[in-house]
Nucleic acid binder design. Sequence first.
RNA 1: GCCGAAGUGGCGGAAUGGCAGACGCGGCCGACUCAAAAUCGGUUGGGGCAACCCGUGUGGGUUCGACUCCCACCUUCGGUACCA
Length: 832
Amino acid sequence: MTSDTQPRGERYAPRAIERAWQERWERDALYRTPDHVEGRPNRYHLTMFPYTSGDLHVGHWFAMAPSDTLARYFRMRGWNVLFPMGFDAFGLPAENAAIKGGVHPRDWTDRNVDRMRGQLKTMGATFDWAREVNTSAPDYYRWTQWWFVQLFKQGLAYRKQANANWCPSCNTTLANEQVVDGRCERCDTLVEQREMEQWFFRITRYAEELLDNDGLDWPEHVKLMQRNWIGRSEGAEAAFALERPAPDGTDEIRVFTTRPDTLHGVTFMVLAPEHPLVNRITTPEQQAEVRVYQERASHATEIERLSTEREKTGAFTGSYCVNHLTGDRVPIWIADYVLGSYGTGAVMAVPAHDQRDFEFAQQYGMPVRVVIAPPPVDGVPWDGSGLTEAWTGAGTLVASKQFDGMPSTEAKGAIAAYLAERGWGGPTVNYRLRDWLISRQRYWGAPIPIIYCEVCGPVAVPEDRLPVELPYDVEFRPTGQSPLSLSEEFVQTTCPQCERPARRETDTMDTFMCSSWYYMRYPDPKNSALPFGRAAADTWLPVDQYTGGSEHATMHLLYARFFYKVARDLGLVPGDEPFTRYYSQGQILGPDGRRMSKSRGNVVAPDDQVERWGADAFRAYLMFLGPWDQGGPYDVDSIVGVSRWLNRVWNVVTDPPALRQGEPGGRELRRAAHSTLAKVTEDLEAKRFNTAIAAMMELTNDMQKLRDEGTADEAAWDEATRLLTLMLAPPCPHIAEELWQRRPRIVTPATWSVHQQSWPEHDPAAIQRDTIDVVVQVNGKVRDRIAVPPDADEATARATADAQPRIAEQIAGKEIVRVVYVPGRLLNFVVR
RNA sequence: GCCGAAGUGGCGGAAUGGCAGACGCGGCCGACUCAAAAUCGGUUGGGGCAACCCGUGUGGGUUCGACUCCCACCUUCGGUACCA
């Protein structure tokens, strides 16, 4: 038989088809999602909205194409699926563009939004554009400001003097996530700490609840990252009495420790250099040394942090405190290995049982007092001699008065309880999570809606006067102050409470605030009285399936959970968690297997791929290249395989073999089609897009073979093409639509589109076989295979196997010790 | 350092403890073409004429049987980093 090498019909021309169907779908408002549809339960699917950087990149496609496939699949399964899209449109790049290129951030952003919306439309996704949100639009950021006011009223927003990441080159503060290895993400300049008056959100109030994420259907590694980020530590707080109270009356230092069992081993005290008590307790003769050290610590922190194997440094304050448990006089030092922002900013140093304290003690000749005896080594008990490094494990207490002989694990609780009894502290829980600094000295963000009044203090802008609009006419000078502060027109106002002249806050809010609630806006995007109505929230929230990158594990996803809990406490939303299910896709890499970046020249432009291969092939390739959660390199040469497949699909459907009733092979074709359907259904449910597409390729290959042979059974062929087209609809919506229309189905004007069809059910009877291949092994090695009925018993299988010459040869002259039979799978002879 | 994920052909990757390498790229052979590209068909883990042997990072273990489970180690990637 010779293969037909020339396509007999019309060639597959993806771009023309795709444009035409996108227009038609839009004209028919096919993806408009009403709040309620009779007989279709609601389901909210969401993929992270893009930042308006200017161009959609492959990463966006990699995130969105599979998400869209999933949304389409659930639509076909009978759900009314909300799958919205919007733009995360505030942020620093817009402002930098303004400083560098003389383009206003508003114009730069609007232009990018238009461009990216157009690019998103080439994807052919089911986005309901009627629900689009744009975080930089006044009717959106009005509500971002409204959120700030609610948090302020709840006591969850507060103002505090604090150290902030400061980039001396960009002249602005940076968010933690914009500091990479101590350097500015954009210009690579070393980041400094600068003390400034800042606004914070009290996310720590929700630390315990945020820690509890066990019930969430999220990837374990993301939940773990969040738990680590929150960093719950159980321990004790212990007070040490100051030998001489500070001038302001402070008479003790409180420390947090996870090792109250080592309290009798304290030989010195260490405060963070910026600890507020330092200046008050430093003795006159130590002033100079302490000042120099503080100065050095504040300026050089980031640079020094980068040097590995850093030596411990510090300075003595000249003051002492008293360990209540021992009555010992303990010198108070400062050192930059103690962080001002964790615990109480003060540490009790136990060099014998903490490696950092040990190193510090070595450096400055401080005594090392062992209070936990390590367990015996090789039966030899610890001999009480000195240590070469800290013993941080468990052991038995020694030199600890009444606690001597107690196991350290037990002593933790006992000593903590003893502290509480005496009023010297007690058991406590400490978190690594810090309050969220939301102030930004930038223009392109939502202005913080606060007015400072000489008399009333900070006053929230009344809700009916929101939004506090960003003035368009602003000077963009990189001065390190918010450009808003240069606009007297913006700054000058009156106090909403007492009507006296007052000044506006000129900082704007961290853009993570905009994205902390955007998913709550989609259900009710046009509401002008509230951020969203309770009815809309009950209709759609929480999000059933959220997808996005795991780089947001400890930022956006944590902030969003915090916001949702606040919203719950305000009675705005149902449930406790915003995202019932979350799936984090991997990262798409350049063809060289490295992160795509312009400087490496390994960036793949989606527009080019779409132009060359079509959106369907591009979508399918992104899903085919590997497991979605793993990501991987984008191989510009491999996409051709997917393109060839779609060509074959096209040829097979538009130009079938001669079809006749009762042609042999009908049953096999039917089996192939239905087992493919079963496999694809299972894979889509589990988000295994790569193997789903591989299965469809196999079915296509089977059909191609029949086409080459020239004939096929009409009923089986027709069913196979119908099933293949329906299975193709979620991943490759355009070609599926075109093929659906070319072979007219049961079409009513109201449900003309393939995307309005139901997902088919596979017929288990069609997959049944008369005989199946069973592997025959000898000592676990495959020697042959036999065909037996699926329900054959061991005797039947064995009889068949015994008749095989190859098996007979293998077991001849040997003793059969055991026979293992797994029905439908294998028969294993264990011989000796 | 700590936490997490992963190591399978030339490459991307498949495999409820049961035929390792599905599917695809690339390679090779062929068809079409004046030719090339594109397209289509065949073939393709390594060794061996063959029977067969060797193969899933390394070393051990459990099992009739291990890519899969357990222990130790090595490597890569991601996160985090003096967190008291």
